[in-house]
Each structure stands twice: as C-alpha cells, then as structure tokens.
Amino acid sequence: MGRLAGKVAFITGGGGGIGRATAERFAEEGAKVVVAEIDAALGEAAAESARGRARDGGDAAFVRCDVTDKASVTAAVEACVGRFGKLDVLHNNAGGSTPNDGPVTEAPEEEFWRAITLDLFGTFLCSKVAIPRIAEAGGGSVINMSSIVALMALPGRDCYTAAKGGVSALTRSMAVEYAAQRIRVNAIAPSVTLSDRVKRMLGGDGRALDELAATHLLGLGQPIHIAEMAVYLASDESAITTGQVFPVDSGVTVR
C-alpha cells in the first residue's frame, strides 16, 4: 500500500516545478491531491499528469487558487474538502524569487512586497484557512517551503531572504501552536532546484549552471528531490517530526 494511501493533500503552486513533482509523487503514493494553482493551464496539466500516475486509490484535481487572496484560498480549500471529504496535508509551495531582487539598498520596494506577499503572507493565509480543516480530520501535516537563504547568507537576495526567513520562523511557531491538535508543521529549505522556471531565469547559461553546480557537493537538485522529502513529511513516517527546517541542498549549507 502507498505511503500516503487514504490521505488528502492540498498543494499550492502545484502546476509546475516542485509543486507538480510533489503532486505526482503524492498520487503515486495513494494520496488524493488538489493542485491549487493560479495558472489554469499549468494546473490542469499537472492534475492530469498526477492522475495518470495515481495508485492505491490516489487521484488528483485542479482548483484555481490565488494564495494572496483569502476568498480564493477559502473557496479552493472548501472545494478540496467537498470533493475528497477531508484535508490531511497542506503543502505551502507557492512562491519564488525573481531577478529583480538585490541588496536592501538597491532592491525595488515593490520586489520586497512581492516576495513578502507571495511567499510569507501566502503561507500564513493558506495555513489560516486550511489548519482548521486538518484539525477536523484528526490532525495531519503542514509542509512549508523555506530556502537555504533563510539558513545562510546569500548576497543579492535580500527580499527573498526576508520572506523565507519569516517562513522558517512561522514554521517553528505553528509547530508549537498546533501540536495539541496533532498537526505537524515542518519546512523544506532547497538550494537551487532546476525547475523550468529556474532554467528560464538562468537563460540557458551553461557557464552559470556549471558554476552553481560546483558549489553543490552532489550536483544541482531536481524537483523530484524536494518532492521526496515532502512525501516523507506528509506520511506517517514523520509522526513525531515537527518544527524543523530541512535543508535539501546538495550540501551547500555545510561547505
């Protein structure tokens, strides 16, 4: 039987990259998955792919969701519960950095608020709406997305660092707040992960990729590597794991 058989999961930003890989792996492990995505075309495609991989009762459906809008989040979470009957796992995956980031003295203020609104407020808002539903199901798992920038200094990324540092702190706080309701709260902190979006940001620059890879002990990560950690955190294997931020970073933070 699959490691997530019988569980219902809600994955934000599930249309591509880490989110899509996680949706596919969850369905393979028997979960019923809602791909919550603002881009309908990406969301539909990811849900179809996850359904095609589903085993042990797994399934997947797309629901449009803007994680920065409470009405949209509430409607998406209720659609998840309406379709699959409950909610066990929230994966707050939506977010990301842009080339507009920079040092605090240079980064546009608009970029700071974009990062805070999407990465930090989006995590806060989805947790606010979904946690009561997870509690109704008897407990479960919240998986946030932090970053290695919350664990080490990375020049030129101060907006993203502020947002992901907030996510890490919020993860620890929520773990304490909701332990009595049997809700585990953890975060994954990836390094550079070669999603399609990241590849576009790098612009096909092979030299830049080589330089990045040289700083990673085991080479650059792929979305599936992050998805495998999410499977563990969603499963009963992590039953007493909470309040942790897990680097999945090819050793960058130990160099």
Rank of each mutant, 00 (worst) to 15 (best):
G2A: 08
A5K: 14
G6T: 08
V8P: 07
A9E: 00
T12G: 01
G13K: 00
G14E: 03
G17N: 09
G19Q: 02
E24T: 10
R25A: 13
G30H: 05
K32H: 06
V35C: 09
A36P: 05
E37Q: 11
I38W: 06
A40E: 15
A41M: 09
A41N: 14
A41L: 09
E44M: 03
A45T: 13
A46D: 05
A50E: 07
A50T: 08
A54I: 10
A54R: 00
R55D: 09
R55H: 11
D56H: 15
D56P: 00
D56M: 07
G57A: 07
G58I: 01
D59W: 07
R64W: 07
T68S: 11
D69C: 06
D69W: 02
K70E: 15
S72N: 02
T74F: 03
V81W: 08
R83S: 12
R83P: 10
F84V: 10
F84Q: 05
D88S: 12
H91V: 13
H91A: 10
N92P: 11
N93V: 00
G95S: 06
G95H: 03
S97G: 12
S97P: 05
T98R: 08
P99F: 01
D101P: 00
G102I: 00
G102K: 00
P103C: 12
V104Q: 01
A107S: 13
E109T: 15
E109C: 09
A115F: 02
A115V: 13
I116V: 14
D119Y: 12
F121M: 14
G122Y: 01
C126E: 06
K128E: 14
K128Q: 15
V129D: 01
V129K: 03
I131N: 05
P132I: 01
I134C: 10
A135N: 04
A135Q: 12
E136N: 04
E136P: 04
G139P: 02
G139F: 09
S141C: 10
S141D: 07
M145E: 09
S146M: 13
I148G: 10
A150R: 10
L151V: 07
L151H: 09
L151G: 11
L151P: 05
M152T: 14
D158W: 06
D158T: 15
D158L: 11
D158G: 09
C159W: 04
C159M: 11
Y160E: 09
G165E: 03
V167A: 07
A169P: 01
M174A: 08
A175Q: 01
A179W: 12
A180R: 15
Q181H: 12
N186T: 06
A187E: 01
I188P: 07
L194K: 07
S195W: 08
D196I: 05
R200I: 08
R207G: 13
D210A: 15
L212R: 02
A213R: 06
T215F: 11
L218P: 00
L220V: 03
G221K: 08
A227N: 04
A227M: 02
A234Q: 13
A234R: 15
S235L: 03
S235Y: 02
D236V: 09
G243L: 02
P247G: 07
S250H: 06
S250L: 09
G251S: 07
T253S: 14
V254M: 13
V254L: 13
R255W: 05
